[in-house]
Design a protein around this nucleic acid. Structure first.
Length: 799
RNA sequence: GCCUGAGUGGCGGAAUAGGUAGACGCACAGGACUUAAAAUCCUGCGAGAUUCAACCCUCGUGUCGGUUCAAGUCCGACCUUAGGCACCA
């Protein structure tokens, strides 16, 4: 019938040669910036999941262009990181080469799918021209006191021999290899992300992110309002501050728990009579992986600090101090007041060590479990009788502040960003260590600091980056004193390059700035950012943090540079499972393109289901889409020589235009396609159709299936659809004169009647009552009420 | 445990503001065309009862309640499932 491969190649070549989709930075048109997450170019090639989201955004881009916007729709590659490095180690080639190959594959696949990316703006995060600016921005963090080096207990993967961020070690398991993560002390570069916790929450108000995305961000930041309360070590007078969200229960404190790492232990080691036991517990806690340590339902463990006690500042009562690993040094003050009567964890601990449990809120049965509900305050001196939790907390806070033993305090779970990786394949951190001058930033004019060309990428056994073995890289001179100095050998995390790439697209060839202020002011922001659900917490938060920082130092025009963020669902295998080689359910887009064509694959992936939900692959359904495309092609046999639109089609044509324009705004791609099928069905029922009719259908279908539609459009002798204007619905053509509506008797549909759109209520009521079946159901009943809901339904209530 | 989604025919899924549930497609069945098959076209297709047939009737959107003339849609409790977080004081 037609050779789709030939047609698709023809138009892909045309678009490429004519730079049809090039975005310009100096246009009078309204800018519109559509972004899809750039892919990690893995060896496996493009996934059908990529095709889904790229097609969706491509359709949006094509429509927005037709609507007269200057559309920026760029693509690039996020190519630093572990997989490329692992691949390089296994195959003994430089990751640079592997990445180059993979990018070639990915780009070839994308081109074969006809996405309207502006390829003139393409870059990879591994390009020195790009990572030069990532390094430059790191220096700005450093120069503004936002980057610091700290000895931290970090998540250490014994197999990959790398340090992992909390995010990468989620659940105590290495995200890459699944090994159990252990704790190891290392000197790390950190970014002060926790300083931005509040701004990152507030900034969400200036975005149009989906609610579930906003909530994900808020939960990740983990804001908690509470109080700090100062206790004192009875024997020494040392202050010991705790953080609590329930200061109203202070009279129920029967012991205190410190994190095993708490610094007070070292300070008072002379006082603690069982220090050996304490040290042993500390070692024990440290040896445990994060997973074991945070595992729920496990027995509480701990050691009592003999020789010291602590005084409750409220009632002067002395209570015992314990250390236990259920208290974390990284949150709050690393010390808690234990109220076993009203906290599950404290309760378990108290039960195990036989500690006193004093209820201060009435209601529960403390012989059975900790009572976390509300009730009247008891055993609480001035709080006795309070029944409202909020009021009790407020009253207690007043008291604490009055006595200067406590203060309101807000805590966040969000921690500073561990920014070092002991890897080869990342952006080198442009810092130099001099024995005399300490850490010194590289001179900005010496950037980029290039990764050396070497053959060894394995990390050292002690966890240093492979770069540490390369003397020509390590040895340098101090930028300050000129003496011998050594470079930082850690590299940046994978998240670095993707934290600002959307800014670079606005001005990708700029060689004296990461992007000019003019360019960023012109494009304003990313209007529509699409990505996977798995990136809505971390990547998005890092990117927002990065932008907020750049804004605060005057380098970007606004604090939030991403307006709408949406997440797409996964394309699952036909067995409803995540696609994976081991399950043998992987669909290769190349095969589909060669067997069915890119248009069919694109159409099918839009049609397969709700874009924001996961959807399983179904080859039969794909064939149905092929059938539809073939029907579109065959419609050309129906062409007549009439001018304009066929009268009988105008209503449905305009209705379709209206529906599609609405669908695209709300990401209703599946209904977008179904409406086109309905329109096509209507065309097929006609004896013949005009060229205008046909062209309209082709324009409407073009965003999803751009190749064949351009071809058929060209055959009729029209200018290309990419230059066309998106049609606007003519409401006067949609307006119907009559409508069929239902008649209900006591809530059940009993008949349908045809009414005029302007028909008056009385006449409609009479029509309804005349229906045989309505009469039948009203027999023996008395009509209570008749309601006419305009142009929708007539409902009769009878008794 | 907490936070997010999602539960609708044999299947993927529609239903935009509470108003005729099942659009559109797949699969399946019957028919047309064909020497035959493929392709294409036509018809049917939630379950049940009844009927020569049609109309008509009953039930039906995870479960149980509620609000309403009217609920897939709103409210309350619960179940299942996917994802995220998780001893965060």
């Amino acid at each position: 019938m037609y050779n789709f491969t030939k047609i698709e190649k023809k138009w892909q070549k045309y678009w490429d040669e004519n730079k049809t989709f090039k975005a310009v930075n100096d246009s009078d048109k309204e800018p519109y910036y559509i972004l899809v997450e750039f892919p990690y170019p893995s060896g496996a090639g493009l996934h059908v999941g990529h095709v889904r989201s790229y097609t969706a955004q491509d359709a949006l881009a094509r429509i927005k262009r037709m609507q007269g916007y200057n559309v920026l729709f760029p693509m690039g590659f996020d190519a630093f990181g572990a997989p490329a490095e692992q691949y390089a180690i296994a195959n003994h080639i430089h990751p640079k080469e592997a990445v180059k190959e993979n990018i070639k594959t990915f780009k070839g696949q994308m081109l074969s799918l006809g996405f309207s990316f502006d390829w003139d703006r393409e870059f990879s995060t591994t390009d020195p021209d790009y990572y030069k600016w990532t390094q430059w921005q790191f220096l700005q963090f450093y120069k503004h006191g936002m980057a610091y080096k700290a000895k931290k207990d970090v998540n250490w993967c014994p197999k990959c021999k790398i340090v992992l961020s909390n995010e990468d070690a989620a659940g105590g398991v290495c995200e890459r290899c699944g090994s159990q993560v252990v704790q190891k002390e290392k000197s790390q570069w950190m970014l002060r992300m926790s300083d931005y916790a509040e701004d990152l929450i507030k900034g969400l108000d200036d975005t149009n992110f989906a609610d579930r995305v906003k909530l994900g961000q808020i939960n990740w930041i983990g804001k908690s309002k509470g109080a700090e309360v100062d206790f004192t070590v009875s024997e020494t007078g040392d202050k010991l501050t705790v953080y609590t969200t329930r200061c109203d229960t202070l009279f129920g404190v029967t012991f205190m728990v410190l994190a095993p790492e708490h610094p007070l232990l070292d300070k008072l080691s002379d006082m603690i009579t069982n220090m050996d036991e304490v040290r042993k517990y500390r070692e024990f806690a440290k040896s445990k992986s994060a997973f074991e340590r945070t595992e729920i339902n496990k027995d509480k463990t701990g050691v009592r600090l003999e020789g010291i006690t602590v005084t409750n500042p409220l009632n002067g009562k002395d209570v015992a101090i314990f250390i236990s690993d259920y208290v974390m040094m990284g949150y709050g003050t690393g010390a808690i007041m234990a109220v076993p009567a009203h906290d599950q964890r404290d309760y378990e601990f108290a039960k195990k060590y036989n500690l006193e449990i004093i209820p201060v809120i009435s209601g529960g049965d403390i012989t059975k479990e900790a009572y976390t509900g509300d009730g009247e305050m008891i055993n609480s001196d001035f709080l006795n009788g309070y029944t409202n939790k909020k009021e009790s907390i407020e009253r207690m806070l007043e008291y604490l502040q009055e006595k200067k033993i406590g203060r309101p305090k807000v805590n966040y779970r969000l921690q500073d960003w561990v920014f070092s990786r002991q890897r080869f394949w990342g952006e080198p951190i442009p810092m130099i260590y001099c024995e005399k001058c300490g850490w010194q930033p590289m001179d900005e004019k010496d950037l980029p600091l290039l990764l050396p060309d070497v053959a060894e990428y394995e990390p050292t056994d002690d966890g240093e980056s492979p770069l540490a073995k390369i003397e020509s890289f390590v040895n340098t001179t101090c930028p300050k004193c000129g003496g011998n100095a050594k470079r930082e050998t850690d590299t940046m995390p994978n998240w670095a390059g993707s934290s600002w790439y959307f800014l670079r697209y606005m001005d990708p060839h700029n060689d004296h700035e990461f992007a000019s202020m003019d360019a960023m002011k012109y494009w304003k922001r990313v209007d529509w950012y699409n990505g996977g659900m798995e990136h809505t917490a971390r990547h998005l938060l890092y990117a927002r943090f990065w932008v907020q920082f750049l804004y605060n130092i005057g380098l970007v025009p606004s604090k939030e540079m991403i307006w709408t963020r949406v997440s797409h669902g996964m394309v699952l295998g036909s067995d409803n499972q995540k696609m994976s080689k081991s399950k043998g359910n992987v669909i290769n887009p190349d095969e589909i393109v060669s067997d069915y064509g890119a248009d069919v694959l694109r159409l099918y992936e839009m049609f397969m289901g709700d874009y924001q939900q996961d959807a399983p692959w179904n080859t039969s359904s794909l064939r149905g889409c092929k059938r539809f495309i073939d029907r579109i092609y065959r419609l050309k046999d129906k062409l007549n020589n009439n001018d304009g639109y066929t009268k009988a089609l105008e209503a449905i044509q305009n209705k379709t235009i209206k529906g599609l324009t609405y669908d695209i705004e709300r990401m209703g791609y599946n209904t977008y396609v179904s409406k086109l099928m309905i329109l096509t069905n209507a065309y097929e029922e006609m004896e013949s159709i005009s060229k205008e009719d046909y062209r309209l259908l082709l324009i409407l279908l073009n965003p999803v299936a751009p190749h064949l539609t351009e071809e058929l459009n060209e055959e009729m002798g029209y200018d290309i659809i990419a230059n066309a204007t998106w049609p606007i619905c003519d409401e006067s053509k949609v307006a119907e004169e009559e409508r069929e509506i239902a008649v209900q008797v006591n809530g059940k549909v009993r008949a349908t009647i045809t009414i005029g759109i302007q028909e008056d209520e009385e006449s409609i009521k009479n029509k309804a009552l005349e229906c045989d079946n309505v009469k039948k159901h009203l027999e023996g009943l008395e009509i209570v009420k008749i309601m006419v809901i305009k142009n929708k339904i007539v409902t009769i209530v009878a008794k």
